[in-house]
Amino acid sequence: MFDLTGRVALVTGGNGGIGLGMARGLAAAGARIAVVGRNADKNAAAVAELGGDSFSVVADLTAIEAPARALGAVLERTDGKLDILVNNAGTNIRRLPQEVTDEDWATVLDTNLTSVMRLTRAAYPQLKASGHGRVICIGSMMSIFGLPLSPAYGASKGAIVQYVRSLAVAWGQDGITVNALLPGWIETELTAGAKRDIPTLNDSVLARTPQRRWGQPGDFAGIAAFLASDASAFVTGTAIPVDGGLSVHG
């Protein structure tokens, strides 16, 4: 029931961090991976690691037509087949709420939310045609609670959870499941900047996380394979924390 052989998965931001961690899990379960990312060199390295018949598409998904174009490029390589969509690409700009500019807000929301909507909307016909479509969106611990330096990021990730719920209700009759993962503090390029900017962050994360460690991209391999497989056929509209217990720590 966990076998993904013959299925095609499109993973945005699949060339590093959490996205690559999920892509590894999907590939290990047998899926063919299409990595969509802005950096051609990182894309190529990810494809070389994933092996098999995986491939990549270079795209910046924030432009209005970019998600549909990227999807079209993937479908050209897969004879129109898409079974799994992983919306992982994201960004953050750390500022206090009173310092956030219109440009900051637009950059974060366009990347983390609007591009997700555009790509998922465009992929609907293929996901429905597959008969077992799977959508996995990446929220955040900030879908649950707030941090002072991430108002735009928190707004985008809170909205992702509500978007997932709407899709799950709308597309359930089409055999498509839609779920969100809510990462805690994971060691990636995105959080490396936060570590540099906030000297107390590492000790705070370790103290607040019951498992007393930072998460790793590999911690997302299994949950991605589960949500993409037939094992999760009756699981939809959920937001699952992958945070070492951070979100339940009183």
Rank of each mutant, 00 (worst) to 15 (best):
M1S: 12
M1R: 04
M1Y: 01
D3S: 13
R7V: 11
T12H: 08
T12P: 08
G13V: 04
G16H: 06
I18F: 04
M22I: 07
R24K: 10
G25R: 03
L26G: 09
A27S: 14
R32Q: 14
R32T: 13
I33T: 05
V35F: 05
V35Y: 03
R38K: 04
N39E: 07
A44V: 09
V47W: 02
V47C: 03
L50K: 08
D53T: 10
S54R: 06
F55M: 05
S56V: 09
V57E: 09
A59Q: 07
L61W: 02
L61C: 08
T62I: 08
A63K: 12
I64V: 13
E65A: 15
A66L: 04
A70S: 11
A70K: 11
V74Y: 02
D79S: 14
L82F: 02
I84A: 13
I84Y: 04
L85V: 12
L85P: 09
A89C: 08
A89Y: 01
I93N: 08
R94H: 10
R94N: 13
Q98G: 05
E99K: 13
E103K: 10
W105A: 09
A106N: 07
D110P: 11
L113P: 03
T114S: 14
S115P: 09
V116T: 07
V116Q: 00
M117S: 02
L119Q: 00
T120L: 04
R121Y: 08
Y124E: 03
Y124K: 08
S130F: 03
S130T: 05
H132N: 14
C137I: 02
I138Q: 00
G139I: 01
S140E: 01
M141S: 11
M141L: 14
M141N: 09
I144C: 05
I144E: 10
I144M: 14
F145T: 05
L147W: 11
S150E: 15
A155H: 04
S156Q: 01
A159F: 00
A159G: 11
I160F: 00
V161D: 00
V161M: 00
V161T: 01
Q162S: 02
Y163R: 00
V164F: 00
S166A: 14
L167P: 11
A168Y: 12
V169P: 12
G172H: 01
G175S: 14
I176G: 15
N179T: 10
N179C: 05
A180V: 00
W185D: 10
W185L: 06
T188V: 07
E189K: 15
T191V: 12
G193M: 08
A194C: 05
R196K: 14
I198G: 03
P199V: 09
T200C: 03
T200Y: 07
T200A: 13
L206G: 06
R208H: 08
T209P: 04
T209L: 02
R212N: 05
W214A: 00
Q216G: 00
D219G: 06
F220T: 09
A221E: 14
G222K: 11
I223Y: 03
A224V: 06
A225H: 04
L227A: 01
L227H: 02
D230E: 13
A231F: 06
A231V: 05
A231I: 06
A233V: 12
F234K: 08
P241Q: 07
P241F: 07
G244A: 05
V248S: 12
G250D: 14
